[in-house]
Amino acid sequence: MLAATAVSQSATDPLAGLVLGDVPPPERRPGWSTVRVVSSSLNMHDLWTLRGVGHPPERLPVVLGCDAAGYDEDGNEVLVHPVIADADAGMGDETLDPGRALLSEQHDGAFAELLSVPTRNLIPKPSWLSFDEAACLPVAWGTAYRMLFTQARITAGDRVLVQGVGGGVASAAIKLALAAGAVVYATSRSEEKRAEALAWGVRAAVPSGERLPERVDVVIETVGEATWSHSLKSLRPGGTVVIAGATSGTNPPADLGRIFYLQQRVLGSTGCTRSELVALLKLMDATGLRPVIDRTLPLTEIHQGFQLMLDGRLTGKLVIHPSGSQPSGAPR
């Protein structure tokens, strides 16, 4: 079967290690199910693997792709919860299992025609959600949901800053916070992306690093070094920064004096639980919320998709079709 596989890693030329070619189909194993993948989507995690960040080279080669929607062995439409873990080992939260693994870390991922995952990780795809939309949700939207509602516990009227409009998590966080009744601010270096955020309903979209009209209750941070100082300065006393990524670097100045003097809270967040992904679907059903899809590409053009991500030219998610054909599904 056709698959996109990471065979080597390079910090400066990550796409050199991405190979498109035939691989054996997954073997059947007890407690696992095979999914025929209709749609998948790109995530920064895929690029980190190719760069050698957080992924040891001895785990190569590995099929990339953390998100999937398709058909299970009985022909049911499903989406895949991407965290492979033992909820009991995480005290009821599989993201806290020390042995947890995101799809494509210890097991082959979703940039292939067939995917093998624990049966527990399959979630029925609602009929009102297309395959492309479903494939956008597990990593980016699940991460944003946990950041906002589990970690920050936002409520209607809260002021929320989302750093960096273009990324999948950031665009999801904006949409979800607005749906919850929050007042949302956003930042981006791109005037085009700031205009897009304004069209979604944010109160203001400012250039990265520019002062906000008011201090906020919550900052959603996935950029890291480049925006960290601005995040803390934008936060009210007693406010909360939730961080789930650091695309610009992981070693920002700590600014400990500001944090302790203003009693600011800094919370880490990783992925989402299966129950949080189900709760996200319920929220989307109730509000009519849908993911932002920048474009779709066949698996044969995945190098082009990665280059668009590297160049920062995406707003929302890029969907990959492993079969190369446009899937059927619920209308948008």
Rank of each mutant, 00 (worst) to 15 (best):
residue 290 R to V: 14
residue 100 R to W: 06
residue 15 L to R: 13
residue 109 G to I: 11
residue 287 T to Q: 08
residue 266 V to D: 06
residue 110 A to W: 00
residue 266 V to A: 02
residue 16 A to R: 14
residue 116 S to H: 14
residue 142 G to E: 07
residue 40 S to E: 06
residue 157 G to W: 04
residue 9 Q to G: 02
residue 142 G to D: 06
residue 17 G to L: 05
residue 5 T to D: 06
residue 106 Q to H: 15
residue 137 L to C: 07
residue 102 L to T: 10
residue 325 S to I: 11
residue 115 L to W: 03
residue 162 V to M: 01
residue 245 G to K: 04
residue 207 P to W: 10
residue 26 P to V: 10
residue 81 H to P: 02
residue 261 Y to W: 12
residue 149 F to A: 08
residue 85 A to R: 02
residue 206 V to T: 13
residue 162 V to N: 02
residue 128 W to A: 13
residue 201 G to L: 11
residue 45 H to I: 09
residue 242 V to R: 04
residue 215 R to N: 13
residue 198 L to N: 09
residue 279 A to L: 03
residue 130 S to H: 08
residue 225 E to H: 14
residue 19 V to A: 11
residue 173 A to C: 05
residue 181 G to M: 05
residue 78 V to K: 03
residue 273 T to G: 04
residue 193 K to T: 09
residue 184 V to G: 07
residue 116 S to A: 15
residue 50 L to H: 00
residue 146 R to T: 05
residue 45 H to Q: 11
residue 293 I to P: 09
residue 231 S to Q: 09
residue 203 R to I: 03
residue 196 E to Q: 14
residue 7 V to T: 15
residue 55 H to M: 14
residue 262 L to N: 12
residue 283 L to N: 01
residue 61 P to Y: 01
residue 210 E to Q: 15
residue 195 A to L: 08
residue 303 H to Y: 10
residue 282 K to D: 15
residue 134 A to Y: 08
residue 34 T to D: 07
residue 49 T to K: 09
residue 58 E to I: 00
residue 265 R to Q: 14
residue 261 Y to R: 14
residue 297 L to S: 00
residue 242 V to H: 04
residue 90 G to D: 06
residue 283 L to P: 07
residue 295 R to K: 12
residue 298 P to Q: 12
residue 85 A to F: 04
residue 228 W to S: 12
residue 176 L to R: 07
residue 296 T to G: 13
residue 320 I to D: 05
residue 88 D to V: 14
residue 205 A to H: 05
residue 42 L to V: 05
residue 311 D to L: 12
residue 75 G to W: 00
residue 241 V to R: 07
residue 320 I to Y: 09
residue 51 R to A: 01
residue 69 A to C: 01
residue 147 M to L: 04
residue 36 R to A: 13
residue 294 D to M: 02
residue 47 L to S: 00
residue 165 V to Q: 00
residue 134 A to N: 09
residue 39 S to D: 03
residue 206 V to C: 01
residue 324 G to S: 01
residue 182 A to L: 08
residue 296 T to M: 10
residue 315 T to I: 13
residue 326 Q to I: 10
residue 219 V to Q: 10
residue 165 V to M: 02
residue 57 P to T: 15
residue 323 S to T: 15
residue 298 P to S: 09
residue 318 L to I: 15
residue 96 L to A: 13
residue 279 A to T: 07
residue 35 V to G: 02
residue 316 G to Y: 11
residue 248 S to R: 04
residue 259 I to P: 11
residue 250 T to R: 15
residue 27 E to N: 13
residue 145 Y to F: 14
residue 231 S to I: 09
residue 257 G to W: 11
residue 153 R to Q: 15
residue 236 R to F: 06
residue 318 L to R: 10
residue 260 F to R: 13
residue 178 L to C: 00
residue 65 G to I: 06
residue 25 P to G: 00
residue 43 N to M: 01
residue 246 A to S: 12
residue 200 W to F: 12
residue 250 T to S: 15
residue 184 V to E: 10
residue 328 S to E: 13
residue 97 D to C: 14
residue 125 K to D: 03
